[in-house]
Amino acid sequence: MEFSSKVALVTGAGSGIGEAVARELAAGGAKVVVADIDIHSAARVAQAIVAENGEAHACQVDVADPRSVEQMVRFAVETFGGLHLAVNNAGVGGVDTETADYPIDNWLSVMEVNLDGVFYCIKFQLPAMLKSGGGAIVNMSSILGSVGWSKACAYVAAKHALVGLTKAVAIEYAAKNVRVNAVGPAFIDTPLLKKNLDDETIGQLAALHPLNRLGSAREVAALTCFLLSERASFITGSYHLVDGGYTSR
């Protein structure tokens, strides 16, 4: 897909889905700000993009801090001269606990990153995009933006709310040449998943998908970049699943 002359910003781009999205955007010619709370991971991805003859700069961001988000967007504009594309991908999980026992501090921290953080990103991205003549945003939700999951009330609530936020913003800015969509991955084969789960559990998760495997970060990136591209010029306010048939059961 063609992204030459476009400036893109990807949060949570230090690994997994965010890294795959950043690298695909760069391969299409975009100038990419690789943003992550872990600056070393962001720098690694940016350096890999440059080594592949792309243009990228790393930026540290804590999406739960609106001042940090504002600085990130300012960095993108000052570094590359504008902002056209954004993928709000940064997110956290949460404790595995039934709702009555769910710690309030964990509820708040999940909401701060997975919902408030996306709001902050959109809030500061929109003015920059309008100054650049318009653009496209993809918010990374989850299959849990449409279905439930036991012992994950905060994550499920945040991802459902994120879909609603996406639709509201899409309606507001459609006439201003900014498209906003959400993507809902199922269980994706990422380093974080392998770090936190053993092989048996990963196998059980894979079996939940009719395709009988986990998805790949590149498969999520493919849809995400399509939604950012001009090929998706009539798509806004939508929520698109990449779930191997999970939600069809």
Rank of each mutant, 00 (worst) to 15 (best):
F3W: 03
S5W: 03
K6G: 01
A13W: 03
G14M: 03
S15K: 10
S15F: 02
I17T: 03
V21K: 08
V21W: 06
V21M: 00
R23V: 10
E24M: 15
A26E: 07
A26S: 14
K31W: 05
V32Y: 01
V33K: 00
V34N: 03
V34L: 02
H40V: 09
Q47C: 01
A48K: 11
N53M: 09
G54V: 04
E55I: 13
Q60H: 08
V61R: 04
V61I: 05
D62M: 09
D62R: 14
D65F: 05
V69P: 06
Q71K: 15
M72R: 06
V73Y: 01
V73P: 01
F75M: 10
A76S: 07
A76R: 02
T79G: 00
F80H: 02
L85W: 00
L85G: 04
A86E: 12
N88M: 06
G91N: 12
V92L: 12
G93V: 02
G94I: 00
D96H: 13
T97R: 15
T97V: 13
D101R: 13
N106I: 04
S109W: 12
E112H: 14
V113R: 10
L115D: 02
D116I: 11
K123R: 15
F124W: 04
Q125W: 05
Q125A: 12
L130F: 04
G134S: 07
G135D: 00
A136K: 08
I137V: 15
I137E: 08
V138I: 09
S141R: 10
I143L: 11
I143K: 07
V147S: 04
G148S: 11
K151T: 12
A152N: 13
C153W: 02
V156I: 08
G164A: 08
G164N: 06
L165K: 01
A168M: 12
V169E: 15
A170C: 11
A170L: 09
N177W: 00
N181W: 00
P185W: 04
A186S: 13
I188P: 12
I188N: 13
D189Q: 04
T190N: 05
P191C: 04
P191I: 01
P191Y: 01
L192P: 00
L193A: 10
K194H: 14
K195V: 02
N196H: 15
N196V: 14
L197Q: 09
E200T: 13
T201A: 15
Q204N: 13
A206H: 11
A206R: 11
H209K: 05
H209D: 07
R213N: 09
G215R: 07
S216A: 08
V220S: 04
A222H: 07
L228G: 02
Y239C: 05
V242R: 05
Y246V: 00
S248I: 09
R249D: 03
